[in-house]
Design a protein around this nucleic acid. Structure first.
Length: 473
RNA sequence: GCCCCCAUCGUCUAGUGGCCUAGGAUUUCGCCCUUUCAAGGCGGCGACACGGGUUCGAAUCCCGUUGGGGGCACCA
């Protein structure tokens, strides 16, 4: 096989959602698996929907996830530029050529006329779609429209024959003659449309495999037709199913934050998101659950991509995320938690934060959970919540004061010694470990849920611990 | 309305005619461990959408039905 060249071509309108990026991940993994080239191309021909922030956001999200590219808007490459908005001249020249060859023609139909005919076709129970009438206009008729002052779009003359695409995921798909209508290449304002830009760019960038969402399945023959008209050979296509929300409906704002950026801000690890996404619609075998970036590249195969759409399951993502969190070493984990604690207004002392990691790593589905788990350590605002106050209220008279006294002079101040002292006070009060520890936990952390108590108090320090117990007592 | 794609536990999936009493993961439930919460260990519940064929034999092949999804844009 000649060199494999794949591309990911997002439209930078809004944020990159996980369904999109999963498609990009497959494309990337396929290219890397075959030792090929991965191209990032920005499809921003519809200037009204594009923002500069989204353009940078797309690249940030991909980099964060670990998807790298060899050619793209920032790194350049032999087919520069890689933003469609900067390739307008290329599209213009191509359009001239298609026009000259008779593969495209000006269309003078107005929106109103088009809409009227669409409605009429529907009423006749026919497939709506352009009827091709401007394709047979005479020179005189065109002149008449021009004289009228009508503007025109440019349409591609779709050859009326059966179209067959052998999709690498879906298999052989056929369209009968007439199913595919003449489509617009250039808007009446002169701007190119996706169907032109994609075909031209895939041809010029020598893309060999187009891996994209299956909502684009019917544009495969259209893309191929334009490429053929330009004398090129169409790439192979692989249309992967969409990712749906937990309700089975296509991902949308209704499903809350589904962008890569949102998961990042919720404390999902990039390695976890990549692993989860890789297994959404693809599998290595019957058993494999965890895959590193390298293992994914080694194993990825389009033949094992599922044909049916998958639902995004946040619970499983978080389970997997916790698995990766547990695998991080303490320094790394502490560094990653720092950002989230900072956002919550806490400014942890680095050494203390690092020592706290073993206590919390198996209790955090996400990095953001470090905030609720460790607030007691980095803030002295630990007023007991409702449950904690209840537990404190049920403690025997003078119990907490007694614990404070015992801890006041404890030596050494270690988790082991603290545990011994707590056990002793609990036994003296006739309490079992649960009943004895909970009031102390509530007073020291403000909550009935915390990391293991003796270890937590060791980190908190004698002074702060005793002070908190006395304040509550 | 027309065209196309799809259909295994709640969810992600394994399965390509006999290895299937349908496997794994997650979720959920129970037990163990246990200072709370987790994590971990063990175990349980849980699926081939339906109806016809083909075949000695069907989750696997064919047809139909139903149900999802996509397309039919001067969006991408």
């Amino acid at each position: 096989m000649s060199e494999v060249r794949c591309r990911f071509a997002p439209a930078p309108s809004g944020s990159l959602h996980v369904g999109n990026v999963r498609t990009g991940l497959f494309s990337w993994a396929f290219a890397r698996h075959h030792g090929g080239t991965f191209i990032l191309r920005i499809e921003d021909t519809d200037s009204s929907r594009v923002t500069e922030e989204a353009f940078h956001g797309v690249m940030d999200s991909l980099r964060w996830l670990g998807i790298d590219w060899d050619e793209g808007p920032d790194v350049g490459g032999p087919a520069s530029p890689y933003r469609q908005s900067q390739r307008l001249e290329i599209y213009r020249e191509t359009t001239e050529r298609l026009l000259a060859q008779g593969d495209a023609y000006p269309c003078y139909c107005t929106d109103e006329e088009l809409e009227e005919r669409r409605a009429a076709a529907l009423a006749r129970r026919e497939t709506p779609g352009y009827d091709g009438r401007c394709g047979t206009l005479t020179q005189q008729e065109r002149a008449a429209f021009e004289a009228e002052g009508r503007s025109h779009a440019i349409r591609f003359r779709m050859p009326e024959r059966e179209w067959v695409t052998t999709d690498l995921v879906k298999g052989e798909v056929r369209w009968a003659p007439g199913d595919l209508r003449d489509f617009v290449l250039v808007r009446s304002d002169g701007s190119p449309v996706f169907l032109l830009a994609v075909a031209v760019d895939d041809l010029l960038m020598n893309v060999t495999h187009v891996i994209r969402g299956d909502d684009l399945l019917t544009s495969a023959p259209r893309n191929a037709a334009v490429i053929e008209a330009l004398g090129g050979t169409p790439p192979a296509y692989a249309h992967v199913p969409q990712v749906n929300g937990s309700d089975g409906k296509p991902l949308s704002k209704r499903h809350g934050s589904t962008s890569v950026e949102a998961f990042r801000e919720h404390g999902i690890l990039p390695e976890a998101l990549m692993n989860y996404l890789a297994l959404l619609g693809w599998s290595k075998d019957a058993e494999t659950t965890f895959l590193s970036r390298q293992e994914l590249v080694e194993a990825f195969d389009l033949g094992r991509v599922s044909r049916n759409p998958a639902r995004f399951d946040t619970e499983k993502l978080e389970w997997m995320n916790n698995h990766y969190i547990q695998g991080l070493d303490d320094d790394d984990l502490a560094a990653r938690c720092l950002h989230f604690l900072g956002v919550a207004g806490l400014s942890p002392e680095p050494a203390l934060l690092r020592r706290a990691m073993p206590l919390v790593k198996e209790r955090m589905p996400t990095l953001a959970d470090s905030v609720s788990l460790l607030r007691f350590l980095f803030s002295d605002d630990v007023a007991p919540d409702e449950k904690a106050a209840g537990v404190i209220g049920k403690a025997p008279e003078g119990y907490l004061a007694g614990v404070a006294d015992a801890l006041q002079h404890l030596d050494p101040w270690t988790a082991e010694a603290i545990k011994g002292a707590l056990d002793e006070r609990a036994a003296a009060a006739g309490l079992n470990r649960t009943k004895g520890f909970q009031p102390v936990r509530a007073a020291a952390t403000g909550s009935t849920v915390s990391p293991p108590l003796p270890e937590s108090l060791e980190l908190l320090g004698r002074e702060r611990t005793v002070e908190r117990l006395r304040r509550v007592a």
